[in-house]
């Protein structure tokens, strides 16, 4: 406050400088000291143990391009290029396991490093420093914001993509005969997929008015206790809807899991393979399959 009062009596010749001029001066300063500032930034990144998933050379290479885009964004005040760069960068580093806090961390570090260099440069001219910071800070914050938002958006995009992949992988509920559904399950079942399977099956029972369901888990190598319990719950829930469930193709490992969690085998109707399961289901439904002629 006292300093601001001082400006009234101080005939400062540069007082009328436009913010854009200040930014231009700032950009020139950052361009001049590019090598040194970039180096300092990289040192700070390593010191704070950010981006541990990347090698030193990679950090340096990325830091160089981030620095240049940063300065360019300051100069042009156009953020589209930076936004595209941030998205591109996120695309490359997300699969490497880089976290949001790291990306935000490095951008804030760069902001601090540059601010420090401005302090050093204008330490004898406090008013000028103030004006330079006035111009620098909003732009710098906007850059940090843009990069962080870009990263988070990219991450969300990746997550959405994975969710879609899961949904596509999800298992169809198929009607093979009047009132008989089969549900072949292939691949790893995690709790989320298990829940989805159950929902689909129960809905399928209702819409197809199924009386018997064959769940084939030949394609499931192993199952943890949570999922095994879920399977048992699915069997019980299906019974509440009036449908009998036959589970087929239990691997020895899954049999072991079911025994370990102490499943009440009276409730579980299990048959060795899918064919046996369908035959059993046909018996339950009163079908009789006959060969009419010798197969040619």
């Amino acid at each position: 406050m006292a300093k601001r009062d001082g400006t009234l009596t101080d005939p400062e010749p540069n007082r009328t400088e436009q913010p854009s001029e200040l930014l231009r001066e700032l950009v020139a300063h950052l361009r001049q000291n590019r090598t040194q500032l970039r180096e300092e930034w990289v040192v700070r990144i390593t010191e704070t143990r950010l981006l541990t998933a990347m090698t030193k050379e990679e950090i340096f290479a990325e830091a160089t391009s981030v620095y240049d885009s940063y300065v360019e964004a300051l100069e042009t005040e156009a953020f589209e290029a930076l936004q595209a760069y941030a998205r591109n960068l996120s695309e490359r580093i997300i699969p490497r396991g880089v976290e949001t806090h790291e990306v935000v961390g490095i951008v804030l570090l760069l902001r601090d490093v540059l601010a420090r260099s401005l302090f050093a440069k204008y330490q004898n001219d406090f008013k000028k420093l103030n004006r330079i910071l006035d111009a620098y800070e909003p732009a710098a914050n906007r850059i940090a914001n843009t990069v962080a938002v870009g990263f988070v958006q990219e991450r969300e995009r990746v997550i959405r993509q994975q969710q879609e992949a899961i949904r596509e992988l999800s298992t169809p509920v198929l009607q093979v005969r009047e009132r008989l559904l089969i549900l072949p399950i292939i691949g790893v079942i995690d709790p989320q997929r298990a829940r989805q399977l159950t929902e689909q099956l129960l809905r399928g029972i209702r819409t197809n008015r199924a009386k018997v369901v064959v769940i084939d888990i030949t394609g499931v190598a192993a199952m943890d206790v949570t999922v095994a319990n879920h399977l048992v719950q699915t069997v019980e829930a299906s019974r509440l809807l009036g449908a009998t469930v036959i589970v087929t193709g239990l691997s020895p490992e899954i049999a072991q899991t079911l025994v370990t969690i102490g499943v009440d085998l009276g409730k579980m109707n299990t048959v060795g393979d899918l064919q046996g399961g369908i035959e059993q289901a046909e018996r339950l439904l009163g079908y009789k399959v006959e060969t009419l002629a010798e197969p040619r």
Partner: peptide, 16 residues
Amino acid sequence: IQPEVAFAMVQLGLTL
């Protein structure tokens, strides 16, 4: 018994 109700019941251990 509705599908959602059935599963909720089973999760609460109410298997009738």
